[in-house]
Design a protein around this nucleic acid. Structure first.
Lengths: 219, 219
DNA sequence: ATTACTAGGAGGCGAGTAA
DNA sequence: TTTACTCGCCTCCTAGTAA
């Protein structure tokens, strides 16, 4: 990973057209652009060169610099991060590890009140039980964003003298396999994400407790 | 201006949803995200706070962080730079200072062969002479990009036993006043940009030699 | 648990200068 | 003119630890 200050230099070179063309720029000129000394500019060019982010043709008067594919990749990665921030994304990504629930998932998914709505609004009756993934503490912040979206609403209902709460659902993918995220409207602030699917996910994903999985939520 | 490493931290907070929400994150968790020590994470949060880029609610257990408007502005600025790089822009920006030509501009603009084509392809006959702006050495790199676009082509012609070369034209603006950039196909690599306009630009812009002007070229 | 201070050390910076 | 080395300085980092 290239360090932030070098990325700034690379960005400056890209703004001057260094992705498409070889650009002519002396270390002194570059120093002015990035508000530093000629020595630092020179050293940073050497570092970028050493890391394979740029190639240089050293002329007798001026050097000609072009950004390499690797350099462009670094910039694209940064651009992608900013797109996630500002280009209101249609997906939210999590990573987490598979955990076992305590069997309550099965109790809930088998309630007719839920199962009938799943069939109607999602198009399938879930395999009994939920597939549980524990996320990092920091990623709980993203859950707040998720809750601000409507998703697919499963209404609350009453059965056996108790009330079963409403549920927010989102189409999602775990390791590219389509699933549905189930977010109870109550019991906020859990670190466990619960998923349902027509299939037995533990088997079809071939995972076990502790395995890391990549999750993409569709908004 | 906030330093690059702090911007990285701000970006990370934004990715966790810190623009919309107050996010809960300990300095230790942040340290893991940005691959540094708890102490550095803590210090960087203090710096971002001091610079007014974030506000913090210090709880007894965890702090709650939200990015301020100023913080968002910093990120947007960075995003804009990357858009310039990757989202193939429809404008190119220059800054330069007004200079006097040596009167040759007048000789050329008054040639019928040029004037007729200007009238036909640009819709006006230029005020005699060209308005000249000298750009920085580094910005000459952007000229290469410009030359790769077609622009509006003024064809070469022969008169008085000599050939007058073809010219590439671009709609542009100097300090928001519409003008046309004239780029001779020969005589590359000049630091002087020549502009024409139906008006007397020196007068209507109220500028003199040495004055700095901002230029936007329309591609 | 937290956050954040202090102290000491690593590394980045620019002045001077060689090639 | 260039680029880029050495060297001294100073910032920034992390470990230890207080609150």
């Amino acid at each position: 990973m290239v360090k932030p200050s070098l990325l700034q230099v690379l960005k400056e070179l890209a703004l001057l057209g260094g992705i498409e063309n070889k650009i002519e720029i002396s270390s002194m000129e570059l120093a002015r652009q990035i508000q530093t000394s000629q020595q630092t500019a020179s050293r940073q060019l050497l570092e970028l060169d050493a890391q394979g982010c740029i190639i240089r043709e050293m002329g007798i008067k001026k050097q000609r610099i072009q950004i390499t594919e690797r350099g462009v990749d670094q910039l694209k990665q940064e651009y992608a991060a900013y797109q996630q921030i500002f280009a209101l994304p249609d997906t939210i990504h999590f990573t987490g590890s598979v955990v076992s629930g305590m069997g309550e998932g099965r109790y809930y998914t088998e309630q007719r009140g839920y199962a009938d709505q799943f069939k109607e609004k999602l198009g399938f009756v879930p395999y009994p039980g939920t597939f549980n993934v524990e996320i990092e503490q920091v990623e709980k912040n993203k859950l707040k964003i998720l809750r601000s979206y409507k998703g697919i609403m499963i209404e609350q209902f009453t059965a056996k003298h108790r009330t079963f709460g409403g549920v927010q659902c989102f189409h999602a993918a775990i390791e590219h396999q389509p699933v549905v995220l189930v977010l109870p409207l109550r019991s906020h602030y859990s670190k466990i994400l619960e998923f349902i699917s027509p299939e037995h996910l533990r088997k079809s994903l071939d995972v076990d407790d502790g395995d890391a999985v990549a999750i993409v939520i569709q908004l």
